[in-house]
C-alpha cells in the first residue's frame, strides 16, 4: 500500500482521569483494532482532523492582482474522482477536458499576521493568496453560492454549502522558487443517490510549484505546475 497519511483519534470519554501511560496503551490497542478493520486498498482517514495552522507564504513582489492562465494538461486514474476534485477546488461547471485553458484574476495580499522569509540575506515580509477572491473569480457567474475566507483562519475556505479545509501543509519559499503541498478535506452535500442532508468528506492533495520567468516581450511572469491527487477515504 501507498499510505501517505494515517490518522487515528481515539476517544477515551468515560470521564475518569487516566494516567498518560495507560492512555497511550489503550490508544495503541484501539488503533490496532481499527487497523484490522481497514479494508483492502483503502486507508482510514479521520474526518474530524482540524485545520492546519499558518498559510502558504509567497514572495513580497507578488502582492496585488495577476491574470492567471490555467491549462489542464493530463488526467490519470479515476476520471470521476479527478473531476470531482477539480470542481471542488475551483473548476466550477465548465467541461473537464485535458488541454482546456481558462483565465481568471487572482491576487496576493498581506497576511493577517506578518510572516517573513529570507531573501538575499534579509528578512522580507511575505504575502498570501486571497483564496476567496481567486475562487470567486474562477467560478464567475457559475458559482454555487457565497465564497468566504477569513485571513485569520486561512486554512478554511467556504464555497456555498461546501467547506475546503487544509488539514496539513508544507510550503517553501526560496530564491530558486516557491510552492506548497496541501492536503485538503472537502466537505460537501453528498448529492446524487444519497442526497438529502447527507454530507461526504473527500480528501485531495494539491501541490503547486512556481518559478519566476520572463514573457517573450520581457515582462516578468510567474510559471507554475500543479498536481492534484485524490485518495480513497
Amino acid at each position: 500500500w501507498e499510505v501517505e497519511r494515517l490518522v487515528f483519534r481515539v476517544p477515551l470519554d468515560d470521564g475518569a482521569p487516566v494516567p498518560d501511560a495507560v492512555t497511550r496503551r489503550q490508544s495503541c490497542s484501539t488503533a490496532i483494532a481499527a487497523l484490522a478493520w481497514v479494508p483492502h486498498c483503502a486507508f482510514a482517514f479521520d474526518v474530524s482532523v482540524g485545520a492546519a495552522t499558518g498559510d502558504v507564504l509567497y514572495p513580497a513582489s507578488l502582492v496585488g492582482e495577476w491574470r492567471c492562465e490555467r491549462v489542464l494538461t493530463a488526467v490519470e486514474g479515476d476520471q470521476t474522482a479527478a473531476e470531482g476534485a477539480w470542481r471542488a477546488l475551483g473548476g466550477g461547471t465548465t467541461p473537464f477536458v485535458a488541454g482546456r485553458a481558462e483565465t481568471y484574476e487572482t491576487r496576493f495580499v498581506a497576511p493577517a499576521a506578518a510572516a517573513t522569509y529570507r531573501f538575499e540575506g534579509r528578512d522580507v515580509a511575505g504575502v498570501v493568496l486571497d483564496r476567496a477572491f481567486e475562487l470567486g473569480k474562477r467560478r464567475g457567474a457559475g458559482g454555487r453560492g457565497a465564497v468566504s475566507w477569513d485571513p485569520r483562519a486561512p486554512s478554511i475556505l467556504r464555497d456555498g454549502d461546501a467547506t475546503l479545509t487544509v488539514v496539513s501543509r508544507t510550503s517553501e519559499i526560496s530564491e530558486a522558487g516557491f510552492g506548497f503541498d496541501e492536503l485538503v478535506r472537502v466537505d460537501a452535500a453528498a448529492g446524487g443517490l444519497i442526497g438529502g442532508a447527507a454530507r461526504v468528506s473527500r480528501l485531495v492533495r494539491c501541490k503547486r510549484r512556481f518559478r519566476r520567468a520572463f514573457a517573450k516581450d520581457g515582462r516578468r511572469v510567474v510559471e507554475g505546475l500543479e498536481i492534484v491527487k485524490t485518495y480513497r477515504v
Binding site: T73, V228, K229, Y231
Partner: peptide
C-alpha cells in the same frame, strides 16, 4: 492515489 491531474499555471500582470 486514485487519480491525478496536472495543470500548468501562468501569472501575468493585468
Amino acid at each position: 492515489p486514485t487519480s491525478s491531474a496536472k495543470s500548468t499555471l501562468r501569472f501575468e500582470r493585468p
